[in-house]
Each structure stands twice: as C-alpha cells, then as structure tokens.
C-alpha cells in the first residue's frame, strides 16, 4: 500500500529525514517510535503534504501513485488521513459544516454522487458512537475551547467519516488521560480492517497496549534504526531510548 524509499526531507535547510525506508501493507498496524526530535512528526507531515517541508531525495508510492506529486487534498481523496498532533482551532467553522463539504469532495473525486443531508446526518450519527462524541461538540467552532481529549476524539471521528485507507496518527496519545486514550483507541480499532492500514507515531508504549502494532520501528536522527514486533516497544518502555542511541552511535 505504502512504499517509502530513501526519503530525505528538509525544513528551512535543516535535514530532518535522512533516508527513511518503510513498507506498509493493507491490514497492518505499524508503530513509529523514537526520542524527541528524531523526525517522527516530520514523517507524518511529509506524507500528508505539509508544504513547509522540502523533499530532497527518495520516493513515496501509495497504491501505485507517486504520493509526493499530489496536493494535500488529493492525498486525502486518495485515502491518506493525518490525525493531527495539535489539531488547529478554526473559529466560525464547525466540524459538521466542513466535513459535509470534505466528504462530498472526496466522493466527487471518486466519481460518486454527493451525499444528501439526510444520509450525511445518519452517517454522522452512526460514526459519532464510535468515539462517543456529542453532536453539540460537532456543531461548535472546530476545536475552539475543546479539551485535549475532545480534540483527539474529533480527529478520530473525522477519520471514521472519511474512511481512509491509510491513517497516520501523529502522537494521538499526547495529553490524553487513560479514559480518553481508551475511547480513542477503541475507535481506531473498530475502523481497522483487512483493507486499510494504520501508522501510529508515538513516544510512549502505552498507546500500543490499546492499538496493538504488527511492527514497531525506531526512528532516530531521521532514519529507521531498528525494527521489530510489539516486544520492541516493551523493551523501549523498560530501558528508554539510550541503549538505542548507543547501539546506533557505534554504527553511525
């Protein structure tokens, strides 16, 4: 589904990603872990099409298409979804309001007719249950005055509405208490199936108790330096990142 080869990316002339290689297949859950500043969020941003990053080398193929050639909206329409680490506040725009346009523009891209108001609302009602989100929250200005937990639940709700093939969860666990973490994770798990894939970016192992990864990759200084199964996450939780740095330090 997703094939990243030797990906290099800069921001303001500073190289953050220095040769990422990663293969994600349909039905898989990948976790990307690593110390602060290792490039985890940059990777998610580059995949979603954030324009301040400059890709200098390498390629990203998504379902047979060159992802890096596509505008952010076309990546979303192809099925890439980024759950933001810091969802932006937009006064005057409600979730309901913009999602209706978003869902219909995605449908138009796929050659499907637009959803009418009734179908859209009934779809919303059904997906709201997944993340236990309230209608009133969705009618308010997007993220304005939302708690951390509400913002993250709203991200997963949008994911449920857009039904992406590849979900990138950028530190969706940061700032969440254990109850909110459970709700958000359950939402993601319910959306999981054999045809889609999830890439979870996180600093901690806790989220991975709920969203269980098939593969765990450690990102350090812009490269994946170690890959393994969920046991690797447990080891990182126990020992921290220093042993990785030492191990890699010898190689680099």
């Amino acid at each position: 589904m997703l094939s990243i080869k030797n990906l290099h990316a800069n921001i303001e002339g500073k190289e953050i990603l220095r040769g990422i290689n990663l293969e994600v297949k349909a039905g898989e859950v990948h976790a990307i872990m690593g110390p602060n500043g290792s490039g985890k969020s940059t990777l998610a941003s580059v995949l979603a099409g954030r324009e301040e990053y400059e890709v200098t080398e390498g390629s990203v193929e998504f379902l047979g298409k060159d992802l890096l050639e596509l505008a952010p909206e076309d990546r979303a329409r192809e099925g890439v979804f980024l759950a933001f680490q810091y969802p932006v506040e937009i006064p005057g725009v409600s979730t309901t309001n913009f999602l209706k346009s978003a869902v219909n523009q995605v449908r138009e891209y796929k050659g499907l007719p637009p959803l009418d108001a009734v179908s859209f609302l009934s779809m919303m009602k059904e997906r709201m249950k997944l993340v236990e989100i309230d209608q009133s929250l969705l009618s308010r200005s997007l993220n304005e005055g939302f708690s951390g937990g509400e913002k993250k639940r709203n991200e997963i709700f949008q994911m449920a509405m857009l039904e992406p093939k590849l979900a990138l969860l950028d530190e969706t666990d940061s700032g969440l208490d254990i109850d909110a973490l459970r709700i958000v994770s359950q939402g993601v798990n319910k959306l999981k199936n054999k045809d889609n894939a999830v890439v979870v970016v996180t600093h901690y192992q806790r989220l991975l108790e709920y969203i269980v990864p098939d593969y765990v990759h450690v990102l350090y200084k812009g490269r994946i330096v170690k890959s393994g199964t969920k046991e690797l996450a447990l080891e990182l939780e126990e020992k921290g990142y220093d042993w990785i740095k030492e191990e890699v330090g010898e190689v680099l």
Partner: peptide
C-alpha cells in the same frame, strides 16, 4: 496557512 492545510488534509480543495 495552518488552518488551510488542516482543511485540505481533509480533502477540501484549496
């Protein structure tokens, strides 16, 4: 720009 990117990342045209 951040707000624009957010909405585009949900599939809305520029």
């Amino acid at each position: 720009e951040e707000q624009l990117f957010y909405l585009r990342a949900r599939g809305l045209s520029y």
